[in-house]
Design a protein around this nucleic acid. Structure first.
Length: 751
DNA sequence: GACCATTTATTTTTT
DNA sequence: ATAAATGGTC
């Protein structure tokens, strides 16, 4: 194996094949390279590929690793298992889950499904949703499962009060119900696999024999169940190689236990520890900034990232008036970088919460000359859309007839006169007879009157026809036939609204996705496809060659890198989130998240915030994020207007035109407002400012020009009569005017 | 049983 | 502000 492409530490990692190995890999230190070479080296040294198991958190990481190993050793890499924890477990369970009393066609429930199950149970248990929100219960259940606790064990460790007792009862009912539905939630994939191993030692033994070499990526994000899984599998061979970075642990809220990586050397006393500390990704300024920020955390593993790279550009910091101004600035800078030669796919916009993407998207959409192609990852996921969930529910019922949740969803979609009362009656009957709802369709209760009985019969016939077709047709053809026979598509086609058109488009996109899946996985079954859509997220579809700007949360950005990275919403209460500021541990996790964000950037990093941000329809005035203060000033270029400095130690100026209490930004009677200039907007004239010398335009402001139309202020220069303003017009691009004569008015939307 | 109007909850991050 | 859920009416 030619390891000359590796630095000494990476080479050591690739050459240490036996025993436990801990690779502490700082951001951008080439850990994927080290891992792939190690896998290739294993194969090269005579280890059969099918003895190798690589576990990752995202499909993208798995795919990338598979591709890179294939590039080194060729197609034999196909025989290694390189996949996510969840997919690997699903694969193991598809084989042997019958030993646990489930059918192999089990469904995988996402949290929407989970929530419906919980709501249903609460209703039956007569518990008020306001007293015990399903959200909270699901969080508790997930916590318990991540720690491999049974409902009883969970209760023993809880407050053991009445409320916990009720949660316990729901938990028990939930487990029972899921089994009836022949469904597993995400956490179950791990839990049941471990259960299978615990109850059926020969199964565990066979996997131990098979996976003689196990590697785990992003080890800092493993929870207790994942830790146990890995531990069980490697207990005999001892060949476990984990890679991680305690500074990038950002999933504690989801059960990840940072101790897994911190205590690795205690768990595996003879472990070889290798540190990758040279960063190959970022310019020195960026790395410097990242190091400074993360240095504020305590209890870290000792490590110091260094680089041979040049200092590079300063880190830009910008403070806008509000989130629209922030997005406007963002858009103008994206245009600027793009025209300077940075391809769109090398630009990422990161934010703390998905909700922040909306305004950014609006501004990107309104940008013209050139238009900016973009893609939003996460957020409203494609498969969450109603019309898509409907199709998927049909498919799920056809695959797993026990799936009452899916069946209830589609039994009357499109409308076929099977109303709520009929469904309730069927469900009650099914419950009494202890059978799935689907069986109740064929054996309806005596009490059901003739008309609904007929409708149910028709529906059952339809489903039975589809069941036959499913076995005989190709996947894509089958889905198209299903859409035809059920009338799912026709339902929207006959409706002439924008919404319906969008739904039809989504349905067609879905068919396209099925087709693509079928191409990539010839001979794939419906079950394979359903598993794919349950376990694959849209971030997995991020491609290197797509010509678009990527918008995503900081969490989704983990493991990715871009030339130019924007981190928006650098405000206290947002990032770090308001829920973390009380708690030192949570705060440190936010800081690690910030570290992750900063280290995504190769060449240029830009941070922005807004004085005023409207979140959930309430205006907020957040001070600058403490993480901004933690950056060394020498690395920073503040691009804000002088009075808008991004740091909180410089107080925000008093704004006569802004009334923090007022919901409308410009009140009636405000000296600056001219009522009725344009419907839906308040306007203030450019000049005619009474006495006060306060300039009223700031970069990011939206303005209307008498001749050129709407635009965004991108810059101001000069003072007094010599003041000039630079505006990026939606229709015409950038133009500059003397402020004193420009026929422009400021636009402010009224809420 | 279907449809419309009103009310209500949602707001961190996700495999 | 928005979308989903609920409730009342035809």
């Amino acid at each position: 194996m030619d390891l000359s492409m590796l630095n000494p530490q990476q080479r050591l990692a690739a050459q240490t094949l036996e025993g436990p190995v801990l690779i502490l890999a700082g951001a951008g230190s080439g850990k994927t390279r080290a891992l792939t070479y190690r896998a290739a080296n294993l194969i090269d040294s005579g280890v059969a590929p099918w003895h190798i198991l690589c576990l990752t958190f995202t499909n993208k990481a798995a795919r990338e690793m598979k591709e890179r190993i294939t590039a080194l050793v060729g197609d034999q890499a196909e025989d290694a298992w390189i996949s996510t924890f969840h997919s690997s477990c699903a694969r193991i369970l598809r084989r042997d889950i019958e030993k646990l009393g489930y059918a192999r066609s089990f469904a995988i429930y996402d949290d929407t499904d989970q929530m419906s199950v919980l709501k249903e149970l609460l209703k039956h248990l007569n518990i008020d949703e306001k007293y015990l929100p399903p959200r909270e219960i699901s969080a508790r259940i997930s916590d318990a499962k991540n720690k491999l606790q049974s409902p009883d064990e969970w209760f023993q460790k809880s407050a053991r009060d009445y409320r916990s007792q009720q949660i316990h009862d729901v938990f028990v009912a939930y487990e029972k119900r899921l089994k009836e539905l022949n469904a597993l939630d995400f956490d179950d994939l791990l839990v049941r696999t471990l259960e299978l191993f615990a109850q059926h030692p020969p199964v565990l033994e066979s996997y131990r024999e098979r996976f003689r070499y196990v590697m785990v990526d992003e080890y800092q994000d493993t929870n207790y169940a994942q830790y146990m899984l890995v531990r069980l599998l490697t207990a005999e061979s001892g060949n476990l190689c984990v890679v991680g970075d305690d500074d990038q642990s950002i999933y504690a809220w989801r059960g990840a236990d940072i101790r897994n990586i911190l205590d690795f050397e205690k768990d595996y006393p003879n472990a070889t520890v290798i540190k990758l500390e040279q960063n190959y990704r970022s310019a020195a300024n960026i790395l410097d900034a990242a190091n400074q920020v993360i240095a504020h955390n305590e209890g870290r593993k000792d490590k110091k990232l260094w680089t041979e790279a040049e200092a590079g550009e300063p880190i830009s910091v910008f403070c806008a008036d509000n989130e629209r101004g922030e997005a406007g600035w963002l858009v103008s800078r994206i245009k600027q970088y793009h025209s300077a030669g940075v391809p769109y796919n090398q630009i990422a916009v990161l934010y703390r919460t998905n909700a922040q993407s909306r305004v950014i998207e609006e501004m990107l959409v309104s940008a013209a000359d050139p238009k900016i192609p973009y893609r939003i990852f996460g957020g409203l996921r494609f498969y969450e859309r109603r019309e898509i969930r409907d199709i998927v529910s049909y498919l799920r019922v056809l695959e797993n007839p026990s799936d009452d949740m899916a069946l209830t969803r589609i039994i009357n979609v499109p409308k076929r006169s099977i109303g709520d009362s009929t469904v309730q009656e069927l469900a009650r009957h099914a419950r009494e007879e202890g059978m799935p709802l689907y069986s109740a369709l064929a054996m309806p209760p005596e009490s059901l009157s003739s008309r609904p009985r007929k409708c149910v019969g028709d529906f059952l016939n339809l489903m039975n026809e589809l069941l036959v077709l499913k076995e005989t047709m190709g996947l894509t053809d089958f889905v198209e036939e299903l859409l035809r026979r059920t009338g799912l598509k026709a339902q929207y086609e006959k409706e002439d609204t924008d919404e319906a058109t969008a739904r039809v488009e989504n349905i067609m996109e879905f068919v396209g996705a099925v087709h693509e899946f079928e191409q990539q996985h010839p001979g794939a079954s419906l079950a394979d496809y359903l598993e794919n859509i349950s376990l694959v997220s849209d971030i997995d579809a991020l491609s290197e060659d797509g010509g678009y700007v990527s918008l995503m949360t900081l969490h989704s950005a983990k493991g990715l890198e871009f030339d130019t990275v924007f981190i928006t919403g650098m405000e206290e209460g947002l990032f770090p989130s308001g829920r973390s500021v009380q708690d030192e541990e949570k705060l440190e996790e936010e800081r690690r998240l910030c570290y992750v964000g900063i280290t995504r950037a190769r060449r240029k990093l830009l941070l922005s915030r807004a004085h005023q941000r409207t979140l959930y329809n309430t205006p907020n005035y957040n001070p600058a994020s403490r993480f901004l203060d933690e950056l060394p000033k020498r690395l920073i270029k503040d691009e804000s207007a002088v009075r808008d400095r991004a740091f909180r130690d410089m107080p925000a100026p008093v704004r006569p035109s802004r009334a923090p209490v007022s919901r409308s930004l410009v009140r009636p009677g405000d000296p600056l407002s001219i009522p009725g200039v344009q419907k839906g907007f308040s306007a203030s004239p450019a000049r005619a400012l009474s006495g006060t010398a306060k300039p009223q335009f700031r970069a990011g402001d939206r303005v209307m020009h008498r001749k050129f139309g709407e635009g965004t202020v991108v810059g101001l220069s000069g003072e007094g009569m010599a003041a000039r303003i630079r505006i990026d017009f939606i229709a015409l691009g950038e133009k500059e005017f003397a402020l004193s004569i420009a026929p422009i008015i400021k636009l402010e939307e009224e809420s």
